[in-house]
Design a protein around this nucleic acid. Structure first.
Lengths: 107, 107
DNA sequence: TATTAATATCGTAATATTGCGATATACAAA
DNA sequence: TTTGTATATCGCAATATTACGATATTAATA
């Protein structure tokens, strides 16, 4: 096996797991913290900041973009990344809803 | 490669990623929701509820226990699981801190 | 139009995760 | 003490993830 049986779970469960999966890598956490630490969008000094190879960073950025946590704006031959604040809050709310609902009836 | 280079990240980043990793599987989300839905600790009808084999569930429970999200109490030949509410809230706070801090300066 | 710089994609090796059958363990009840 | 039930562990196959070198793509600039 090795394949997650997502068919047997509902959308909310699969979506939660998907979001958690994207966030489950320290490089991606570090990238988000770095992007978030800048007042404006930052261009790709991320590679130097994080200390992983450029293709690796590129792949991580792709994962973060896949759930719209960040956005990249093309600016000449550079790309400026910033946090998508609406989506950021939406995801935070979604996770809090999970945490709050799950503990409501427990114990 | 294939190994996450956790040495180059700090504790907070690795801990966050570790928590997100445990939560990144829909079966584990479903297990948490099921355990949380009961007023009291529940014993292992989890296997029938979730629809995965018993060894698989046992492994998922072990992962959830590894970050103390749930606790198992031995009761005869059964084991009763419940959410560890203190730890649950602690993790929720830790994640919110990450979400709030990261978006503070951004954009 | 070449060159250079920034970023993305491809291919691949190393490792991790998921799931389960077989089996071990622990304990209650016969 | 044997039997049955609940749970854990082992070992393995299938698949996913991480990382990176090589290479492609894109766009500004010489």
């Amino acid at each position: 096996m090795g394949i997650t049986k997502s068919q047997i779970f509902n959308d909310q469960q699969n979506q939660l797991a998907g979001i958690f999966r994207v966030l489950s890598n320290p490089a991606r956490i570090a990238i988000l913290e770095y992007i978030g630490s800048k007042k404006a969008c930052i261009c790709n000094d991320i590679v130097e900041e994080i200390g992983l190879a450029q293709p690796t960073i590129s792949q991580h950025l792709k994962e973060l973009k896949s759930i719209q946590l960040i956005e990249g704006e093309i600016e000449g031959k550079k790309i400026c990344y910033c946090i998508n604040l609406n989506r950021w809050n939406e995801i935070q709310d979604f996770l809090n809803e999970f945490f709050n609902n799950t503990k409501t009836n427990c114990c």
